[in-house]
């Protein structure tokens, strides 16, 4: 019986091997019960496709993004510099991650601290695999013909101008992609960025995730697709708040592809 492999960099280095790409899992991908399923789905896809990858495993630490956005530059840099030492120590060239916050930080903010890598988001990686014909989509899966809407993550969209890759991935599933009124450059935040994930919102009339969930539900989509762990939490909470969790599911792109592949 062959099982899925999740090699760590330490193991690879011990065998004198270098993977093509490092999968940066991120804290949500490692600890958040819901997002762990996304990490597992992505790892299965990488296995199925035969991508040479590794993870840092216990050597990974938070990129520091929430600390930096909350104003704590010292803490951010402590995290960043330590991570860069690990990454450079393993001679990492290419990083893929399912978290747009990690993606943004490693891609845009680590170079100033001595960490230069080619960094791509898992939506872009999946799109490349699909375009190259490496992912064998069955197309007859549970999403076929269904209405699906995609919620843009701010740190993927406006922050880094990645709008089309996630949409291309969804379209590959032979579904009806429906857009919310505020999408792409005008996409509305889920409410979790800038450190908000880790504190209660300021006093106001409404929670941001409720506003966004209402917009997503108004499309009539049966699935809200996301590409970010924070968005996944916020949109799932919103759907629960609206008592629609039986009818409307919130999935990450990797989960959707894995489901279609039957893995």
């Amino acid at each position: 019986m062959s099982t899925y492999k999740v090699p760590t960099m330490a193991e690879m280095a011990a065998n004198g091997q270098e993977p093509e790409v490092l999968f940066w899992v991120g804290c949500a991908g490692s600890f958040d019960d819901r997002y762990k399923a996304v990490t597992q789905a992505f790892v299965k896809i990488l296995n199925k496709v035969g991508v040479s990858f590794a993870v840092l495993g216990p050597e990974e630490a938070c990129t520091g993004d929430p600390a930096r956005r909350a104003g704590n530059e010292f803490l951010f840099q402590m995290q960043a510099v330590a991570n860069i030492q690990v990454l450079n120590g393993y001679n990492i060239k290419k990083v893929v991650t399912a978290c747009p916050h990690c993606f943004n930080t490693i891609k845009n903010e680590y170079p100033a601290l001595g960490g230069e890598y080619e960094v791509i988001h898992h939506s872009q990686f999946l799109q490349q695999l699909i375009n190259a014909g490496k992912v064998a989509l069955k197309g007859g899966g549970e999403f076929k013909g269904k209405k699906i809407t995609f919620h843009d993550s701010c740190f993927l969209g406006r922050a880094n101008n990645v709008y089309e890759a996630p949409r291309e991935v969804i379209k590959a599933l032979d579904v009806e992609l429906v857009e919310m009124k505020r999408c792409r450059t005008k996409g509305l935040c889920c409410g979790a960025g800038g450190g908000q994930m880790f504190k209660e919102p300021e006093p106001g009339k409404k929670d941001i995730n409720i506003e966004r969930t209402e917009e997503a539900l108004a499309t009539g989509a049966s699935t809200i697709a996301v590409g970010c762990p924070f968005c996944l939490t916020m949109m799932s909470d919103g759907v629960k708040n609206k008592e629609q969790e039986e009818k409307v599911k919130v999935y990450d792109l990797a989960e959707m592809i894995a489901k279609d592949m039957g893995i």
Partner: peptide, 12 residues
């Protein structure tokens, strides 16, 4: 790294 335990035991 605990998230990997179940995947590593799952059959492809």
């Amino acid at each position: 790294f605990n998230w990997a335990d179940s995947v590593k035991n799952e059959e492809v």
